[in-house]
């Protein structure tokens, strides 16, 4: 038996919106400690990783570990039937064939219930080793979304250069080229404002990445004020959006490699 309650449906809506473009169907692994999801996109270029801890839910019960295969488009459609402030409960019995999702209004005078069919999804999962990143950029997630949008007007690939001075995003295309530099601030405090950027660096590092994937990652911006971009030579770049007090979404993107 699985039962999980979130006080606001908007959080679950944002989580599903952040990954549904990259992953059409995914296995949700429920255990005593919480929910995990790992899925690659069809082209195996990006890996989405979601972790929601049990203590982030207002109620959480998982009698035995269970994997539920869910079509994210269907999940998203059902979640659109909830008001943002509705309480949402998801429930599945052992060996269930569907996931029950119910919404209760704040006044508790309206309760709706939907069932989404579960599916067997046979997908490869990968081992992500712990890595010592050479550089970590911590920046506003809104700023990240804006840079991705701006760069996409010019090119299809983006180069991220992290140095002690800051982080530079650049692109080029048939129409021309452009770059945006965010200077490193030592401390991120109120004086600097929430839009400031920090770059923790051991060694300068540079990666070229496909912009269309970053545009998908930027869909997680409503979940978190900040995003961290973790870079290491010759390995996928990791983008992390923390989900307040309960977990995170991480996206790993394979870099472009020299031919």
């Amino acid at each position: 038996m699985i039962e999980a309650v979130l006080p606001q449906a908007s959080l679950l809506k944002k989580i599903i919106e952040a990954i549904k473009e990259l992953v059409s169907e995914a296995n949700f692994d429920f255990s005593e400690t919480g929910i995990r999801l790992q899925a690659m996109d069809k082209s195996h270029i990006a890996l989405s990783f979601l972790h929601l801890r049990n203590d982030g839910f207002s109620e959480y019960r998982c009698d035995r570990s269970q994997t539920l295969g869910i079509n994210l488009e269907s999940f998203s459609k059902v979640l659109k039937c909830a008001a943002n402030d509705d309480q949402v409960q998801i429930k599945a019995t052992d060996k269930a064939e569907s996931l029950s999702i119910s919404f209760e209004s704040t006044a508790k005078d309206r309760v709706s219930e939907f069932n989404v069919k579960l599916m067997d999804i046979d997908i490869d999962s990968v081992d992500v080793p712990d890595m010592d990143y050479q550089a970590t950029v911590n920046m506003s997630s809104q700023e990240f979304a804006r840079i991705v949008r701006d760069m996409m007007t010019i090119g299809e690939a983006i180069t991220i250069d992290a140095t002690k001075q800051g982080v530079k995003f650049s692109t080029s295309g048939d129409a021309g080229e452009g770059n945006i530099l965010l200077r490193h601030r030592k401390t991120i405090d109120e004086e600097d404002g929430p839009s400031s950027t920090s770059v923790e660096i051991n060694e300068p590092v540079s990666h070229s990445l496909a912009l269309k994937f970053l545009a998908n990652f930027a869909k997680a911006a409503p979940l978190a004020d900040r995003v961290s971009i973790n870079l290491i030579e010759d390995a996928p770049v990791m983008f992390e959006f923390k989900i307040s007090d309960m977990g995170h979404i991480r996206f790993y993107l394979a870099p472009q490699i020299e031919e």
């Binding site: 490869d124 999962s125 990968v126 394979a254 472009q256 490699i257 020299e258």
Partner: peptide, 14 residues
């Protein structure tokens, strides 16, 4: 310009 890498060429499939 480089060629697009794949996640499974960096991380092992378990």
């Amino acid at each position: 310009k480089g060629q697009q890498g794949r996640i499974d060429s960096f991380f092992k499939i378990s």
